[in-house]
């Protein structure tokens, strides 16, 4: 059976992705920050869990996550991420460090550490970006910048690894996960329209099966995906 590493799999979109790949019978290695005891009951049986805080992505931390995966890895979905809703001057130095570390530096270093394993399986690397990677965003300038940086990394790395390991980036739109509460987003009306994480996870799975290097989940994409899903 093929194997997949999913980072940030203890909550939200990542956890929904675990369900997707488990139900297909894949070997799933799930990463999260919280302790295994606080995540195990929610994860399907046979899922291996690796705990690592990525806000200081030292070589040890990165190696621990990579070493939890098989020598030959078919897919890595680098999904762990966090945000803070505040303009730059009201974002603390620690919050800025965390966002850049978790959303940009850690996925870059993980990609590097996983390269031999992905190459061995002729596997694929998928980054989870955000539709915020494009455009200007008043209240999450730093978060958007970390995702733009990830997007830039994906573009150049794809050119470098062409013919060796395909690199893809998928940009989900607003999703109804716990991320927004953690980020300090108020009870805004728009939240009603956020997509459910299991629908986003299925759309990610479909996008990974395709070969588009960069996929944005705009409203049109989600509508088309929903229609295609209801037909099958």
């Amino acid at each position: 059976m093929p194997s997949v590493l999913i980072t940030g799999a203890s909550d939200g979109i990542g956890r929904a992705l675990v369900e997707c790949y488990r139900s297909k019978g894949w070997t799933v290695i799930a990463h999260g920050r919280r302790q295994a005891s606080r995540v195990a009951p929610q994860l399907p049986a046979q899922v291996k869990y690796v705990e690592a805080d990525l806000n200081m992505p030292t070589e040890d931390t990165i190696a621990r996550v990579a070493q939890a995966t098989p020598d030959s890895l078919d897919l890595a979905i680098l999904n762990a991420g966090m945000g803070v809703v505040a303009p730059p001057e009201r974002t603390t130095p620690a919050q800025i460090n965390d966002m850049i570390a978790v959303n940009t530096t850690a996925p870059l270093l993980l990609a590097q550490a996983l390269f031999p394993r992905l190459q061995a399986a002729q596997g694929k690397l998928t980054f989870i970006g955000s539709t915020a990677a494009r455009g200007a965003h008043r209240d999450f300038a730093v978060y958007a910048a970390t995702k733009a940086a990830l997007s830039g990394a994906a573009r150049s790395l794809r050119l470098e690894w062409e013919g060796r390991v395909p690199v893809q980036i998928i940009h989900p739109g607003p999703t109804a996960t716990g991320m927004h509460d953690k980020a300090g987003l108020g009870d805004i009306a728009a939240r009603k329209y956020f997509t459910a994480p299991d629908r986003v996870a299925r759309a990610i799975e479909t996008a990974i099966e395709g070969d588009k290097p960069s996929v944005r989940f705009g409203p049109l994409f989600m509508l088309r995906h929903a229609i295609a899903g209801s037909r099958t």
Binding site: A144, L150, G152, A153
Partner: peptide, 28 residues
């Protein structure tokens, strides 16, 4: 930021982050 930079992936990433930050910063 406009062309990509194979051979300097992390450099390109850092500069794309700055470009995005510049444009968001303007709003606040």
């Amino acid at each position: 930021t406009f062309t990509g930079y194979p051979g300097a992936t992390s450099y390109a990433a850092s500069k794309d982050g700055l470009s995005s930050f510049t444009h968001s910063l303007r709003k606040s």
